[in-house]
Design a protein around this nucleic acid. Structure first.
Lengths: 115, 115
DNA sequence: CTAATAGTTCGACGATCTTCGATAGACTTG
DNA sequence: CAAGTCTATCGAAGATCGTCGAACTATTAG
């Protein structure tokens, strides 16, 4: 399902950084999104999920990939999820992640040149 | 292609996050770039310079715009400059900043979908 | 040379972040 | 129900970050 409601999308607020000056409230929102991308472990976790395309990735594999403890990986995945960049679904004992490409596109739009 | 030097550009290394999995070294580089965008004050400073288009912006105006002390603004502008997002030039007593659009485009490319 | 101005660097403090071990919660299996 | 497995949360330690006042550097004006 589209985990991500267009009306409530916090980034729907924000024009490109290059055209209109960001006010304080919008800057706070956008900064939170980029902060989710500002850690190398999170970037590699995100990249791993994103590179799977539409396919899902099992949480059970992630700790080995980034060589961090299970609680640390859980923490980072929560931040990526809170930022709307990945979707989670628990099925049975396992948790599966998949990318939310719309959110990455929204961030790209914030960095886009003025039209 | 970009006007800056492709060989020396630290982001020239990095394929889109969505297609190829980032290794540790590349994730470190990309994370540093996004970290520069992960603070609301820096985003507003960058937005102010970027929204001026190709025109330059005087450092003397920035502290009033973001309501922070002058050393704090200097600190943030240094981070943006180190990230390659803005260029600085000192002329006489004043420092002038302008946007480096190629670097913003490079970051957008890292977030782009696989082709 | 002296005084004045713009910006950077230094030193410190508090807040936030990353990390992990221990623990708790959710779910399956026997 | 009890035991086992997978993930999330808690609590703490250490590192990093944002912030400002004070001191320093560079440049201009007189």
């Amino acid at each position: 399902m589209a985990a991500h409601n267009r009306v409530l999308d916090p980034l729907a607020c924000c024009p490109p950084v290059r055209s209109e000056r960001l006010d304080e409230a919008r800057a706070e929102l956008v900064a939170k999104s980029f902060a989710a991308l500002a850690d190398p472990i999170r970037l590699r976790l995100l990249s791993h999920v994103a590179a799977a395309g539409g396919d899902e990735v099992c949480a059970c594999d992630l700790a080995a990939i980034v060589d961090r403890s299970q609680p640390t990986v859980s923490h980072h995945m929560r931040i990526l999820h809170d930022a709307g960049l990945i979707a989670r679904e628990k099925r049975g004992l396992w948790v599966w992640y998949r990318i939310v490409p719309e959110r990455l596109d929204a961030l790209r739009a914030v960095l886009a040149a003025a039209d």
